[in-house]
Amino acid sequence: MHLQKCVSFFILKMIRLCMKRVESVNILEIQDLTKKFGDFIAVDHMSLSVAEGEIFGFLGSNGAGKSTTIHMITGLLRKNKGTIIVLGKNSEKSATFIKRNIGMVPQELAIYEDLTAYENVHFFAGLYGMRGKKLHERTVEALKFVGLEGKEKIYPRNFSGGMKRRLNIACAIAHRPKLIIMDEPTVGIDPQSRKYILDSVRKLNAMGCTIIYTSHYMEEVEEICTRIAIIDHGKIIAEGTKEQLKSLITDSKLIVVDVKSPEAVDLAAIQAIQGVSNVQLDDQTIQIHTELGVNNLNHLIAHFIQNGIEIRSLDEREPNLETVFLTLTGRNLRDA
């Protein structure tokens, strides 16, 4: 009886120990990472960690340093300073081990137009040490995963933009990496392909992959990411779940005005109204960011009426990631 108790206690302890280890595993840890191009500091003492199983969003305007960071993690660029630890191994000592376990979907399409879809995936996956039947199976699997089954023998030059993007992803996942880094995988594609890609990101994650997802599209990041880092001028300026990020913005709200002729609206004049921090024309609606606690709704409505602009609807919204980004960086994400 005593022995049984002892054994079960021991087993329990072991399980707890294992659980603890699993919990604490960070698939990626970056400390003090710095990259300079001449005098220009592209990545500025960045520190960050991504836990296993996350879909980690990397948000930043053009030139923020997202790609540069990713390239240092994948070993494409040399860092000037700092440490990168992937799966518990230091990038300087275990470069090959790390390379084997990472898949990167580059920001630019990186495929051979004169090799078929199958040959593209087969070639790149082959570089990870697979061959023969296994390589063939993984190739077929990856193509199927991104919805290109039946298109194996087609040359990418005959693909649509969305299909090329999907092939770009297939080339990065066939070797079943533990960490997949996607650098703006949905740039310039149709909504259907985008949905396909977002679904496959979720599917990959469900299969156990950790994903770092870079995008300009706020909605995408909001939709799929479990945690988000906002990066600006090579620094992380905010980090957390989307709720955490939104809670940072307690002093601002968004008023969306749908008007009949938005092009007739004088944005500068609205900006001048008391309490307004930012005005934008977005998708035929006027988006007005205004300070919380300043009741300027009357002034705003009066402005539209005085200028003879017909208001279709007016909506006060919760701050979204766009607002967060705007407030933190002072810039709009997409056209900064």
């Binding site: 994948t74 494409l76 390379k99 990167m104 580059p106 990186a110 495929i111 137009e113 790149f124 990870y128």
Partner: peptide
């Protein structure tokens, strides 16, 4: 130019 250089270089090659 094709950006495939990145793919080749991040592979364990």
């Amino acid at each position: 130019i094709l950006h495939t250089a990145s793919r080749l270089l991040i592979a364990p090659v």
